Amino acid sequence: MPVQTRVVYQVNPSMVNALKTIREQAYNASRGVINQRVRIQTVDGQIYEGVVVNVDRRHVYLTVPAMQGYGRQWDEDLILTLVLYELLVITLLYI
């Protein structure tokens, strides 16, 4: 018996190229700030500060310092993986 399927969500085809362009722009911008301290804001309004340690075609990797928050305490730096097309703003932070 064949398996039946039902599409639950499909991105509007006209948006695919726009998303690829956004991802490419974020990739190029992120590559230019490797090993620099930045503040990154996502499309959801989340803000992260840290040092960009790596970038690939889909993600930017941000080291954030040990911190306390959300009822937890981290004793070591963390590496956050952020999806490129979710980035809204990347700001260089000068010390």
Score class of each variant (00 low, 15 high):
26 A>D: 10
78 L>G: 05
7 V>W: 08
73 Q>I: 04
72 R>M: 05
44 D>I: 03
82 L>S: 00
37 R>T: 13
81 T>I: 09
63 T>G: 02
27 Y>W: 14
93 L>C: 06
53 V>N: 08
82 L>E: 04
21 T>N: 14
70 Y>C: 10
86 E>W: 06
3 V>K: 14
65 P>Q: 02
13 P>I: 10
78 L>A: 11
45 G>P: 03
34 I>C: 01
46 Q>H: 10
9 Y>D: 02
69 G>A: 02
84 L>P: 07
60 V>M: 14
36 Q>D: 01
8 V>Q: 13
77 D>N: 14
39 R>Y: 01
11 V>D: 02
22 I>E: 09
49 E>L: 04
52 V>G: 04
33 V>E: 00
5 T>G: 10
58 R>C: 05
52 V>H: 08
81 T>N: 06
57 R>F: 08
52 V>Q: 09
41 Q>M: 11
73 Q>W: 01
66 A>G: 03
11 V>W: 03
67 M>T: 03
54 N>Y: 12
80 L>W: 01
21 T>W: 14
59 H>A: 03
4 Q>W: 09
55 V>T: 05
68 Q>T: 07
40 I>H: 00
61 Y>H: 09
87 L>I: 15
12 N>K: 11
15 M>K: 15
62 L>D: 09
41 Q>Y: 02
89 V>G: 04
18 A>Q: 11
14 S>T: 09
74 W>R: 15
87 L>H: 09
25 Q>P: 07
30 S>I: 09
63 T>Q: 14
75 D>K: 12
88 L>P: 03
68 Q>L: 05
3 V>C: 08
71 G>S: 02
57 R>A: 12
90 I>F: 11
11 V>Q: 04
22 I>Q: 10
20 K>C: 07
24 E>A: 07
44 D>K: 15
77 D>F: 04
93 L>Y: 04
27 Y>D: 07
71 G>R: 11
70 Y>K: 13
5 T>K: 12
37 R>C: 10
24 E>L: 13
81 T>F: 02
59 H>L: 06
59 H>M: 10
11 V>L: 14
75 D>W: 05
71 G>M: 08
80 L>Y: 00
56 D>F: 07
50 G>V: 11
30 S>A: 15
23 R>C: 12
81 T>Y: 00
75 D>P: 03
1 M>Y: 10
50 G>Y: 05
4 Q>D: 09
25 Q>K: 13
20 K>W: 06
95 I>F: 01
84 L>K: 11
38 V>I: 01
11 V>K: 10
64 V>M: 06
95 I>E: 14
39 R>D: 06
5 T>A: 08
95 I>R: 13
44 D>S: 08
39 R>V: 06
57 R>L: 13
90 I>P: 02
93 L>I: 12
89 V>C: 04
36 Q>M: 02
77 D>Y: 08
4 Q>L: 12
56 D>N: 12
36 Q>A: 00
45 G>F: 00
5 T>F: 14
32 G>I: 06
57 R>G: 07
70 Y>Q: 13
52 V>N: 07
31 R>I: 09
